[in-house]
Write a protein that binds this DNA or RNA. Structure first.
Lengths: 335, 335
DNA sequence: TTTCGCGAAGTAAACGGTTTCTTTTTAACT
DNA sequence: AGTTAAAAAGAAACCGTTTACTTCGCGAAA
């Protein structure tokens, strides 16, 4: 059924070298006559190279490992889509791995990928890892001894990374709220140490400070970036004088919406709301929800680009991508 | 850096055969003394086998290709999560491929996976393919000459497949609407030929018939399974006497919600609504949305199980999984 | 003492390509 | 016609494992 180069060589009456050279379109020698003849034979028998053999011989696998915390989270799944499309465009396969936001698992999977012989890794680290502190993060990152790029999680290390500007995201969101007259602005950011949680908070604080507003620690809430996180925090926020809430994840925001719905109230009647991630669902709500828009597909393709150059060069690249606000109707001027 | 079996053999003063046998825990021969010695050396230098070489020698890759129409669609991303977790549990890697719901691309990707030497394929086919008719579907499916299982798309062919009971889904949804007193029930199913579109429609028709209701072709609408599909159809549905709408995809439903929101109306005030897929977002809406719930993670793990047995056996398995209704508040009794 | 059997280990041929090096062929120039 | 360089093609080593087959050595049976 499946035929090899040797067989093609036999059919064409040439050596395997010749076949290899032709089929790989190598510049070198080989008359046009042989070229077309061999290609024709290969095409007719629809020859496909055995990629294990190619990998073994060339010592590269044309495969990139992609590790994410949770494939089914809309943010990550969009990112994966962008990454795998870009990778495939460049002739690479993607081995996608779900860490389930658990570092132990994440570490094990990375090790397996390395042993598996992937050419490089795109790592979107778990919050679980980051919550364990910088030291832990650094030792882990330093232990990866093949080309990799850290995606969507700032690191002080001199490594390849591509991030979205979370500080700017926090700043823009807060500024919009302030521009609409709000002064008591609650923020629900990620848990202590969570990826991007501190940076977004910093942006929020800077915006307040720049506008001469006081930073009230009682308005700062933390939760996991998920439905339940928002569901629980919104109950505490109601004890505060906040008139606007900045959720650092749309998912948390939805959780808050749910909590209000359950008691027959409408979250948007009580608060000006801004979310983060610009999930497509935001335009379905009434009112439509304003959210910090991250260019996820750019994040994915940049990550691939950086990894690609890292594969052949030694210098490290650090990219930070701009973030914008998708202004819709959930923020209202305070009267 | 990376050491090979040969080097381990040299260190231990034995042949590579011995090392291979020991490291693979083969029953055969080899004294306990050598066993522990070799294992110790391997562990100390943390030896990892070169998987290309293993693949080449054993003619298997421990890798499964997974082809889906759109990674970022919530239904597919949940499915992928289930699949890749299950696969990883069984020691397989998953090569996930996005066909972008385009058959030409899908076919190319499948061919690449085969040439890549994956052990098997989990194929969630594109609507694009199914829309091209049964003949096209069959020739394509028949052309795949490695073990594979067709996921979430019925086929008459005698091949491995695992599906969700779409007929039952259509039936249950319609019956609920009927039980609530509705007689003019619109359905928005997938475009002609789309995966599962006909079967869900059949379920709908059977439920109407079983209840002695007439089947009004003017209440049957078709659209792609996406936001825009619903957005457009809802405008036509308003010309009909329908009091209830069965959307065969939550995404279409959201599109309809959006259309109503834009004209400051609430879809749920005008219609009893039921969706399909039970997307997590449904419980965030007000009212919460009733939807046909498919056990996606079961679908994924069953698919893997079937493929796994297909890898070592010749008989084909055809699994059909039950579907349930997640009844919430979007269906109201007609008074 | 020779032979047989068996456990323990080694040899070497795959697996299907890539690539370096060497050899043959062709054609161009005295 | 003879020389030579370039063009075309082949031989063989190599990538790191697996595995069928062979060999070795030693104790038990004859």
């Amino acid at each position: 059924m499946k035929l090899t180069m040797r067989e093609i060589a036999k059919m064409a009456g040439v050596s395997v070298t010749t076949v290899s050279l032709v089929l790989n379109d190598k510049e070198a020698r080989i008359s046009q006559k042989q070229r077309t003849k061999i290609k024709e034979i290969a095409r007719k028998n629809n020859y496909v190279p055995n990629s294990s053999a190619v990998s073994l011989a060339k010592n590269e696998s044309n495969t990139i490992g992609v590790v994410v915390p949770n494939i089914s989270n809309p943010f990550y799944s969009s990112l994966i889509k962008a990454i795998s499309n870009e990778l495939s465009k460049r002739g690479y396969y993607s081995l996608i791995i779900n860490s389930n936001d658990n570092h132990e698992n994440e570490a094990k999977q990375v090790a397996k990928l390395v042993s598996r012989g992937v050419d490089g890794i795109l790592l979107v680290p778990s919050n679980d890892l980051y919550a364990q502190g910088t030291d832990k993060v650094n030792t882990f990152l330093n232990s990866i001894d093949i080309p990799f790029v850290l995606v969507n999680a700032d690191s002080d290390l001199d490594i390849n990374q591509v991030n979205l500007d979370s500080f700017e995201g926090g700043y823009l969101a807060t500024q919009l709220l302030i521009d609409n007259g709000h002064t008591d602005i609650a923020i629900v950011t990620g848990n202590k140490g969570f990826v991007n949680a501190e940076t977004r908070l910093l942006g929020y604080q800077k915006a307040l400070a720049d506008n001469g507003l006081t930073i009230d620690p009682n308005l700062v809430f933390r939760a996991p970036y998920d439905l339940n996180g928002g569901y629980e925090r919104i109950q505490q926020i109601q004890q505060t004088p906040a008139t606007a809430i900045f959720f650092c994840s749309d998912l948390m925001l939805y959780g808050a919406v749910k909590q209000f719905n359950e008691s027959k109230r409408n979250l948007f009647d009580h608060y000006s709301i801004i979310g983060y991630d610009d999930t497509f669902i935001n335009e379905i709500f009434n009112p439509t929800i304003t959210s910090v828009k991250q260019n996820v597909s750019q994040l994915g393709s940049e990550a691939v680009r950086v990894l690609y150059t890292a594969l052949s060069s030694k210098l490290t690249i650090n990219v930070k991508l701009d973030v914008t606000l998708n202004v819709r109707d959930s923020v209202k001027a305070l009267d």
